[in-house]
Design a protein around this nucleic acid. Structure first.
Length: 428
RNA sequence: GUGGGUAUAGCUCAGUUGGUUAGAGCGUUGGAUUGUGGCUCCAAAGGCCGUGGGUUCGAGUCCCAUUACCCACCCCA
């Protein structure tokens, strides 16, 4: 039996859905433009070779893979960063750095679905390639915050938590905890607030940590301020100095109220090397809104020249859930400047000429495709969100004039085809 | 992957201890109104009651399986 639902985890965008999506994309695009990012694009299909080299084998079972008719191993991209890296490396000698690139791309992951997670989503990426300064992090985070503010969200509704894998690694090293336990400790930190401390301790015990080390981990869990971190890691820590600088840059860039220091932000596995960050709704109901960080080794790992990079990914699903929860979904009413209809076939010619005049003036026009009774035409014009309606019948054809009716009940006005075109071209 | 819940019209949902021809609101279409939308009134269309089996004289209703969706956990950008 055929089904008319899209495949699991995939989405249809009916026109009303598309308008909402377009409003989000517009906020992303306009924000990227305001921050001086150039837009690029890459194919949805990439080679498995590229994706494997970056991620290792462990996530390959979450990638949509297939073999093409020439036995190439291909995949639907799970994220945009590998494609970006590939494009950068391909022209590494020709591009001038640092560069700031932006993309909106559809990405796929074969995972279990929960709220805010589908098997397909659109992700806005911002990347700065070739800049060591923390100002790169500040620009990227500032842009993402600006996009959320443009969508109507405030510091009451979301916060960007900033951590540093480098700082965390220094803390663990100074505490004498073995490098081999680093990831397990990160997982424990990641669970802070979700399960009880006793359960965290049990997890660490299972990992094989000594009781003394577990106590140390809990001391690190208590660190919530930069000053506490400084006391633990030492005032001369370069990694900590970078975080401090990020916070000081956030002031003049206008997003300091959105930043929170949080060592628990580690961004799971992967290629991040320094500062990492994630934005969350303050209610704590949703997954991360956006996340990213510094990945200084990715280009060299892929075979390019080593080059410092900062980037973030910002998906469409979670932010739309948050906007819905806050009652701040963008208004997406259908809009068209003019609706034009006609009563019978002899009236059609004049209607078509009026539509041509409207479109020539750069205004949008929904032209009726068949003769309609006035009642039906005006009802349709209303539903289409037309600002003005023009209805042509025998009377109009005979007089050579027609009336332009504002649908919001302002007074209609009458014009010939020529005077109508003239007025459209004018400052009205 | 584990546990729980749900599945009836395009949407949101009723549907009595199992009993005739399965309902409402919204939406859609048509009419009231043969040259003017919204408001009102009338009417129509629209259903394999998720799917497959079972119990029964009889199943939307009870049982089993299956699929999909929702919630929590697990995992994770």
């Amino acid at each position: 039996m055929t089904t008319f639902a899209p495949p699991r985890g995939m989405r249809d965008f009916y026109p009303e859905d598309f308008r909402a999506r377009d409003a989000l994309f517009s906020a992303w695009r306009e924000t990227a433009r305001l921050h001086g990012f150039e837009e690029y694009d890459a194919p949805v299909v990439e080679t498995m070779e590229l994706l494997e080299r970056k991620a290792g084998e462990e996530i390959s079972d979450q990638i949509y893979t297939f073999v093409d008719k020439s036995d190439r191993r291909l995949a639907l991209r799970p994220e945009l960063t590998p494609s970006l890296a590939r494009m950068i490396i391909a022209r590494q000698g020709a591009l001038s750095f640092p560069l700031k690139w932006s993309a909106i791309g559809q990405c796929f992951r074969y995972e279990r679905m929960t709220r805010g997670r589908k098997r397909e989503h659109y992700q806005w990426n911002l990347d700065i390639v070739g800049e060591e300064s923390v100002l790169a992090e500040a620009e990227v985070i500032g842009a993402a915050v600006a996009a959320l503010r443009r969508l109507g969200l405030s510091a009451n509704e979301f916060q960007v938590r900033v951590g540093s894998r480098a700082v965390l690694a220094e803390l663990f090293a100074r505490s004498g905890i073995g490098q081999e336990h680093f990831m397990a400790c990160c997982l424990a930190l990641d669970k802070r607030g979700k399960i009880s401390d006793d359960e965290v301790a049990r997890l660490l015990e299972e990992e094989g940590l000594a009781t003394r080390d577990i106590e140390r981990v809990f001391e690190l869990l208590a660190i919530t301020t930069l000053d506490q971190a400084a006391a633990a890691v030492g005032a001369d820590s370069a990694a900590l100095a970078q975080i401090r600088e990020l916070f000081s840059l956030a002031g003049p860039l206008g997003f300091a109220p959105f930043l929170t220091f949080d060592l628990a932000v580690i961004r799971g596995l992967g290629y991040y090397t320094g500062i990492v960050f994630e934005a969350f709704d303050t209610a704590g109901k949703l997954r991360a809104i956006f996340g990213g960080g510094r990945y200084d080794s990715l280009l060299s790992n892929l075979g390019g020249q080593k080059m410092p990079c900062v980037g973030l990914g910002f998906g469409d699903v979670v932010v739309m859930e948050l906007l819905a929860d806050c009652g701040k979904l963008p208004a997406t009413a259908r809009r068209v400047d003019f609706a034009i209809g006609f009563m019978d076939d002899p009236s059609r010619d004049l209607a078509l000429r009026a539509a041509l005049a409207v479109r020539a003036a750069g205004k949008s026009c929904d032209l009726a495709l068949a003769a309609e009774k006035p009642k039906k035409f005006f009802a349709r014009a209303d539903r289409a969100g037309a600002l003005h309606a023009i209805y042509i019948g025998p009377d109009e054809v005979q007089s050579g004039t027609f009336s332009i009716k504002p649908m919001d009940d302002r007074r209609p006005w009458t014009a010939s085809l020529d005077s109508f075109a003239e007025r459209l071209a004018g400052p009205a």
